[in-house]
Write a protein that binds this DNA or RNA. Structure first.
Lengths: 151, 151
DNA sequence: TTAAAAATTGTTATATTATAACATTTAAGT
DNA sequence: ACTTAAATGTTATAATATAACAATTTTTAA
């Protein structure tokens, strides 16, 4: 699915950006939160909470479900991670400084997900809800299907 | 949220349409499936699977989780019901003969959900994914926020 | 019309996803 | 250093969903 050439670079850049965002916002980017974010970034395939849990256990953490869900809550609130509701899985945000107005293409063959932005789309949605005098707080837009590689 | 005047009429028309769709498609619209659909249509607030379960139990069914989920599977496949992934709840489809290309406005105050259609939106999505050479199978578009009444 | 096949429902058990509640530890502010 | 707040540990359980197999009902077709 993806145009990522060297995924190590991908991970490191995401981690660096997370560091600096937390620094700027005065948030505590603890070892645990760092590790969870890194585990999520290990691939472009969205990760299940309990898979993170298993991986953490292999890393000297006494991890239990709340361990993971709390870290996830932090990462979600900070905008470093997205939850994909249609598959109950989590994926790193690819541009956490502009975290909103995105949607996701999720390949049901290779399981990778790609975060996309589209002004036209955002505008169309904006128009649609204004017609309904609706004040949006959170938009979920996820497309399940086959990506170019798997087609 | 809604412009539905007499909800009895709303329910009855949905049930009639469901009957005729099943008839046309040669599907078996059993008592159980009928009852589950009716329970979902009881309000414009999306229903939780386990709420359906409780209501069924009050109606002489020996209902257990699979009872409900199987009926839901049928109704989802037939296009009579939508699942709202962002809140894990189910809502009747308001125009099951053209079941796709819709999105949902979900009010976090009154909890009602409204199914909407927007050609511009569908077009914008279509354009976006074609740019990514992606072959969509299912689109999830849900907007959480405040409706006009609750604003 | 009746036996075989298919679909539906019943039933038991369990998998998956997520949170509540309270104790302990670690970090921050004074 | 002391206090407070934030983060993590721990135990238990809630909420959502499916697997597997048995019994029943409906349909098909011999």
């Amino acid at each position: 699915m993806l145009d990522c050439q060297d995924h190590e670079v991908c991970i490191e850049s995401a981690m660096r950006e997370a560091e600096s965002i937390c620094q700027e916002k005065g948030l505590r980017f603890t070892e645990l939160r760092r590790e969870v974010l890194r585990l999520i970034w290990l691939s472009h395939i969205p990760t299940k909470a309990y898979d993170i849990l298993e991986k953490l256990k292999g890393k000297a953490w006494s991890a239990k479900p709340p361990t993971v869900y709390r870290a996830l809550d932090f990462l979600l609130e900070t905008g470093l991670v997205h939850k994909l509701d249609s598959i109950n899985a989590y994926i790193g945000c690819s541009h956490p400084r502009e975290h909103d107005g995105c949607y996701f293409l999720i390949c049901t063959d290779c399981n990778e997900a790609k975060e996309c932005c589209s002004p036209e789309l955002t505008d169309a949605i904006e128009l649609a809800w204004s017609k309904n005098s609706f004040r949006p707080k959170k938009v979920t837009l996820e497309v399940l299907g086959q990506c170019g590689q798997c087609d």
